[in-house]
Amino acid sequence: MNKGDRGGPGWTWGLEDDVFLRTTNRMNKVFKDALSALHDLQDGTTLMLGGFGLCGIPEHCISALVQKGTRNLTCISNNAGVDDFGLGLLLQNHQIRKMIASYVGENAEFERQLLSGELEVELIPQGTLATRCLAAGYGMPAIYTPAGYGTEVAEGKETRVFGNKTYLLETAFDADYALVKAWKGDRLGNLVFRATSRNFNPLMAMAGKITIAEVEELVEPGALDPDHIHVPGIYVHRIFVGTNYEKRIEQRTVRSRS
């Protein structure tokens, strides 16, 4: 289709890489499950995955990736799951080529693959990770942050002094897909998150070229209060309902009633 070919079939003018032609209708973003939503995800793709620890991870998207066997993935995610859940499942299968994360301390297989050189890893400060997502979603190519100045994180990076403090220039992420987990969503892609399972999910949802959201509950447009929507549907391309969430707890800490 020619660029600038307005009024042709659909609303496709000006889009080189046509995200929504892959869905049937631009405003109906609903897919029946994770496998169909991830149908065109190829080997060698760069993915963002929401979640903090195991809290708010896109469990069903990860399962679908395991099932598809997609390989050579670059994953941007705060953590790397645990050995037998979350991104740990992709690590076990050697589906991840490179991992960009801030904290990976809960995963022995990760540590083994890193130390043996099987896995390429870029560890970056958590706030830098979050803000590089934010920049992508806000259309800003880069941000300045003081985090990591004077450390090995700063190696090779441009610095600039503002006031009496030195900042590092950090670029926005460029990810093909963002896989996020929300509490509720509607067919327009509007999303609402719950408690601390929000974490990186809204930021990554805004940063992906193709954003795929899995939700616990799919509601009719209008059911979500416009004042309470965390991510406007304009950022979200595909949505599906995930069933039987495992929501594994990493550290069960309680007060005893006795």
Partner: peptide, 12 residues
């Protein structure tokens, strides 16, 4: 190999 998590942001 654990990573810095949020520590670098906090101390900065």
């Amino acid at each position: 190999v654990k990573g810095m998590g949020g520590a670098m942001d906090l101390v900065a």
